[in-house]
Design a protein around this nucleic acid. Structure first.
Lengths: 213, 213
DNA sequence: TCGATACGAGACCGTTCCGTATCGTAACGG
DNA sequence: CCGTTACGATACGGAACGGTCTCGTATCGA
């Protein structure tokens, strides 16, 4: 009975028991958006994961705590949903060459690094999520893994097409290509990301090498 | 008057007013080490910054809370000292070539990444220290900045010696060289770091480029 | 021996937070 | 109109924690 008739519909959002035709007053869509909005606003304001309490979220959203608990069973479930809907998938990119795809991918990360919400979630992912297994797993599944896989795919195609050296391990190639941009977006808060040409320069440097001549 | 007579003695450890010849029972050095040890043990066990409470530290150290507060005015001061004494400085390395120095530096980071304590502090630094300004500043001053400066210095010498391309921005060169290893040590928990040849391969790949032929 | 200080243990207070329950009100179906 | 459910607000119990204080004991200098 647990998973017989329900198609496991990648159930986003609050746990809505949609089976019953719901009598009484319907749930407010506005309240839901206000809750999501409040969490995202707090994240953008640099509030740490520890300070991100349900009471603070409710206050920021102008919503009663009960309205939150009516939708999510606890704080963890709420944050899992927030993380889940936070980042849209990378656009599928099929440039003429592997190099084009790599530049696009690196530039996507550069632009993403400019968005404060992304930075917050990445940093929190590293720091606090160790003691929060489900949140960490969701983040890895939905955010880290797909991007890593996409890069791997581009690199593999590049190797097969003869654009990238075939004497290097695929993992090493990936790290050499996206390490620098991730370093700038995640570790070094003060590093500039505004230059729209940065991705091209990075990929070019990686391709051609840093040694003189 | 701020820095006239005090030699700014890089005052490690608990705030000890060493001026008075201290009568009564002296403070226990063992207790101090037990406190430091307890924090480091908890960190190695993967306890998050939020769970790292004074009471838990005291219990782990087998020490009364008062013994902690007698040495540090609050939790923040304790953690600042812990961070401060956590990492020893990078060894000054003057290899025959810039390439040797870079390999040594990257390998130092690889070995450091194998130590759980370092990983913990780096991750916490990213996640939770945003709401903890003094801790973050200390970490940046004592850990991040010196290492970054050393890399910059090596790279600058490499450019001057004609080993590295002079048409690239110094910052970009630094990121291309240490981004990959930091990616592995900080962001990807599961990435292997055991290969003692990793640093050499990474620097070689960066020097010679990833493009085929 | 005596005063001063440190020790481990833990009581204590104030604060914050989670999660539940209760209010009076508002919005839906029948 | 009535039953049902959601709403915002808020009170509540319970837990965790920071920081202070008080015990009885131990260890120093004088």
């Amino acid at each position: 009975m647990t998973s017989a008739d329900t198609p496991l519909k990648s159930c986003h959002g609050p746990a809505a028991e949609q089976d019953a035709p719901r009598r009484g007053r319907p749930r407010s869509e506005a309240a839901e958006q206000a809750i999501y909005g409040a969490v995202e606003k707090l994240m953008e304001d640099g509030v740490g994961l520890a300070e991100l309490s349900i009471e603070r979220i409710a206050a920021e959203a102008g919503v009663g705590k009960a309205t939150i608990y009516r939708r999510w069973s606890n704080k963890e479930a709420l944050l899992v949903d927030v993380v889940d809907r936070l980042e849209e998938p990378m656009p599928p990119l099929v440039g003429p060459t592997c190099r084009d795809d790599l530049i696009a991918a690196v530039d996507y990360m550069r632009r993403r690094g400019l968005i404060k919400r992304s930075r917050w979630i990445v940093k929190s992912a590293l720091g606090q999520m160790n003691s929060w297994p489900e949140l960490k797993q969701t983040y890895h599944e939905r955010v880290v893994h797909p991007r890593r896989e996409l890069i791997r795919q581009i690199v593999r195609r590049g190797v097969e097409a003869g654009e990238l050296r075939s004497d290097l391990d695929i993992e090493l190639l990936c790290e050499m290509l996206i390490g620098p941009i991730l370093l700038r977006t995640v570790l070094w808060d003060d590093a500039p990301l505004e230059d729209p040409d940065l991705a091209r320069r990075m990929v070019a440097a990686a391709f051609e090498g840093l040694a003189a001549r």
